[in-house]
């Protein structure tokens, strides 16, 4: 998900950079105020960033020979709060950018926005909501964290796809199912790893987990987690299908709509040879014969593509839902 230079447009990179700087400044202030022993914040967040960096080196397979890696935003957010998560991720991204050339410098703000702000801060209220909805107790706690981890990956990758589309680099109809689809699987790995980390911490250092001591160990902890995981996977599949069915046809229309508005308001210079014009298009290899109008045809093609990805993953998901998850 690390965007290199040149793939996202200047204006988007600039806006994202400003947003990231503001978010970081705010996060640094909040963190210093929230820590009981505020001097501990610096070494702790540095080591957490180093942990995220190291953890991201452990790839896991998502099928078909491809692999994904851990993001870590939700783990840090759960244990240290959303502001620490944003800072830790930003530090990791700068280090990766400077030491690995992983992620372009001009896109640094965009990457921090996607992984630090969307991944660490935006998903935090989602987790609090889920905790309120799911049954109270340790199983519910872990389930809500698992679900949020999955969601953080899918959301961050979707935002990335949106940025690519708005930059004119790739049509939304391609970028979004591709990004969200693969990351829906990677998100499952993220959820598994996040849960495992919390379980390890619960055994070795329960004092780190906020409120852990107050949560009751309920009988149904394992089954709650399993139910949540199953629900998660169905939700993931359903959203990917919905995206493919409903968004793809409109993706081709979307930039047109944007341009039309821009023209009306006089923002866009007309007929620049560098301007890319998207069209309603037909997916080249898949012409669905029975459907004649172009919109549903693209949607169908997108759906087929998504199902192919998910079909493979689904068998994998079934394996995972077996009662093997230790809480």
């Amino acid at each position: 998900m690390h965007i290199p230079d040149g793939f996202v447009s200047g204006p988007i990179n600039a806006v994202a950079a400003v947003a990231s700087v503001a978010a970081l400044a705010y996060s640094l202030r909040k963190v210093k105020r929230e820590f009981k022993d505020k001097d501990f914040a610096v070494p702790l967040m540095a080591v957490m960033a180093a942990f995220v960096f190291a953890a991201q080196m452990l790839n896991f397979p998502i099928g078909g020979g491809t692999s994904g890696h851990f993001l870590g935003a939700v783990v840090v957010a759960t244990l240290l709060g959303p502001w620490s998560a944003c800072i830790a991720l930003a530090v990791v991204l700068v280090i990766q950018g400077l030491l690995f050339a992983d992620g372009g410098i001009s896109a640094l703000g965009t990457n921090i926005l996607n992984m630090g702000i969307v991944g660490g801060i935006v998903t935090y209220p989602v987790m609090r909501c889920l905790r309120a909805i799911l049954p109270a107790g340790r199983g519910g706690y872990l389930a809500s964290v698992a679900a949020t981890s999955w969601f953080s990956i899918v959301l961050a990758s979707s935002v990335c796809a949106l940025e690519l589309a708005l930059s004119g680099t790739s049509p939304l109809g391609i970028a979004l199912p591709a990004m969200a689809g693969t990351h829906a699987l990677i998100g499952i790995g993220e959820a598994l790893i996040t849960t495992a980390v919390l379980s390890a911490v619960a055994i070795a250092r329960p004092d780190i987990i906020p409120d852990w001591a107050n949560l009751k160990v309920s009988e149904g902890a394992t089954s709650t987690l399993q139910k949540a995981t199953r629900g998660l996977t169905m939700a993931g599949l359903a959203s990917a299908v919905a995206l493919a069915l409903f968004v793809s046809p409109f993706a081709s229309g979307y930039p047109d709509g944007l341009e039309k508005v821009a023209e009306d308001k006089g923002f866009l210079e007309t007929a620049s040879e560098d301007k890319i014009v998207w069209t309603k298009s037909i997916f080249p290899d898949y012409k669905v014969q029975s459907i004649e109008s172009e919109g549903p045809s693209t949607g169908m093609a997108g759906l087929i593509g998504t199902m192919a990805v998910f079909g493979f993953g689904f068998s994998v998901i079934r394996l995972m839902a077996r009662p093997n998850i230790k809480v």
């Binding site: 953890a55 452990l58 896991f60 397979p61 998502i62 099928g63 851990f70 699987l185 499952i188 790995g189 598994l192 790893i193 996040t194 849960t195 495992a196 980390v197 919390l198 379980s199 390890a200 911490v201 993953g313 994998v316 998901i317 394996l319 995972m320 093997n324 998850i325």
Partner: peptide
Amino acid sequence: LPQAAVIGRQTG
């Protein structure tokens, strides 16, 4: 993918 759980334990 489920083997990510092992990686999860390592990460923990």
